[in-house]
Design a protein around this nucleic acid. Structure first.
Length: 420
DNA sequence: TTTCATGATTGGCA
DNA sequence: TGCCAATCATGAAA
């Protein structure tokens, strides 16, 4: 009733300019008289009782001039009110909504199911640390949670869309119903539908915002988990230490060496890099503390090398671990162990002995035999002198990683180190 | 609970 | 870009 009342009142107000346009004030023509009657009835309808008003409404609906009048009123409404609103309602595409959509798409929440591929790629990059197994566990956990978020998001989105559709239908029906008693143009209905959609899209944006927040929280939790340190396995530590102490003169593994160490230790290349970075610094800071460990690994390496020699495996391995063709570090470890032992024992090992034409394997073999023969003297001597580190606390310039890319370069560093 | 060991991160440098 | 140095954060032993 209130709606009807308001509608009729608005009709009356809208009727004012109409009457002017139609020259209602002039000598009334028959059709003008009809319109004037209708308007007067409309104006009077508010003063009537409910029953009377209903009866009058019915009479008005049945009036032969009603469609024409409504048509004119609709036209005027569109030209005035709706055109003004139209300018105001032309919203530019919402940048915020686009950002949210893009993010949800990138995270694999919106759009087609990626099976967590995008997310896992992000995670793989994020989780450079941690064991492979742990990562996979965390990844599956992350994916499961992301999947939950996705599920909730889609379920809510569906609900909103359904509600939007239902509400739109309801309002359209209502407006169509009202169009019998007040001038409602199809354009106005369309505009109302747009308004409803925009209201629902605001709600959807809130949903998207919440979903994005949930994803961000999940991600930050996962990224925080990176800091959860787990000690490396014994095997990984052994592999790394073996390499470190057998290349003490130049503990900078090449990329290939890092990859190999990573593979053998079951850790990532970046973890290998971290480990060597930490190790170099900590060793340098407190060489005394690491001496025992160094002795143990030197002995171990020497024994391994001896075994390799006795089994005739040596010939297939290059002497330098940083050689791109290197498949194993064992032999080269022995070579450098020997080098370190040389320093310990004060052997006048001359670089000239390493003739360029001498196969590296033979050289290593020589060193290994030599080194293992002198093992007894290892324990009681300062096996790893700070001579490997220059006055600035750095390993010699010849030992920088850039010089480690080829066997020849490595050999050079060995020579220069030995000549000290 | 404290202390030490150790993997990861960060900022600066060459 | 890789490294160093300082630092953080956590696991493990005392």
């Amino acid at each position: 009733m209130m709606v009807a009342h308001a509608s009729l009142s608005s009709m009356a107000s809208l009727a004012q300019p109409v009457s002017g346009d139609m020259e209602l004030g002039a000598a009334p023509m028959p059709q003008h008289q009809d319109i004037r009657d209708i308007l007067q009835q409309i104006m009077a309808i508010t003063d009537q009782s409910l029953d009377e008003a209903q009866a009058r409404k019915h009479a008005l609906n049945c009036h032969r001039m009603k469609p024409a009048l409504f048509s004119v009123l609709c036209e005027i409404k569109e030209k005035t009110v709706l055109s003004i609103r139209g300018i105001q309602d032309e919203d530019p595409p919402d940048a915020q909504l686009m950002r949210l959509d893009n993010m949800l798409l990138a995270e694999g929440v919106a759009g087609p199911e990626k099976g967590g591929r995008g997310a896992s790629r992000t995670l793989a990059a994020a989780a450079a640390g941690g064991c492979a197994n742990d990562n996979s566990i965390e990844h599956s956990d992350y994916r499961a949670k992301l999947s939950q978020i996705r599920q909730i998001y889609h379920s809510e989105l569906e609900k909103y869309e359904q509600a939007c559709s239902e509400f739109t239908t309801h309002v359209m029906n209502l407006l169509r119903e009202q169009s019998r008693t007040r001038p409602v143009s199809p354009k106005e209905i369309e505009r109302m539908v747009n308004i409803i959609h925009s209201k629902f899209s605001t709600i959807q944006m809130q949903l998207k915002q919440s979903t994005c927040e949930a994803v961000m929280i999940l991600r930050s939790r996962f990224l925080d988990a990176r800091r959860k340190r787990r000690n490396f396995s014994k095997q990984a530590t052994e592999v790394l230490n073996e390499y470190f102490y057998s290349h003490l003169s130049n503990p900078y593994p090449s990329e290939e060496a890092k990859e190999d160490l990573a593979k053998r230790g079951g850790i990532s290349v970046s973890q290998v890099s971290n480990w060597f970075g930490n190790k170099r610094i900590r060793y340098k800071k407190n060489m005394g503390k690491f001496q025992e460990e160094a002795n143990i690994y030197a002995a171990k390496t020497a024994v391994d090398a001896t075994n390799a020699v006795s089994q005739g495996k040596l010939g297939s391995s290059p002497s330098t671990p940083n050689s791109s063709s290197s498949g194993s570090f064992k032999v080269s470890h022995s070579g450098e162990s020997y080098l370190n032992l040389q320093a310990l024992n004060g052997d006048a090992y001359q670089s000239s002995q390493l003739g360029a034409n001498i196969p590296p394997q033979m050289d290593s073999l020589h060193h290994v035999i030599h080194a293992t023969g002198r093992y007894d003297s290892i324990a009681g001597n300062p096996l790893y002198e700070p001579q490997h580190i220059d006055a600035n606390g750095r390993w010699p310039a010849s030992s920088t990683p850039s010089s480690m890319t080829s066997p020849a370069a490595d050999l050079g560093s060995v020579n220069s180190d030995a000549s000290n």
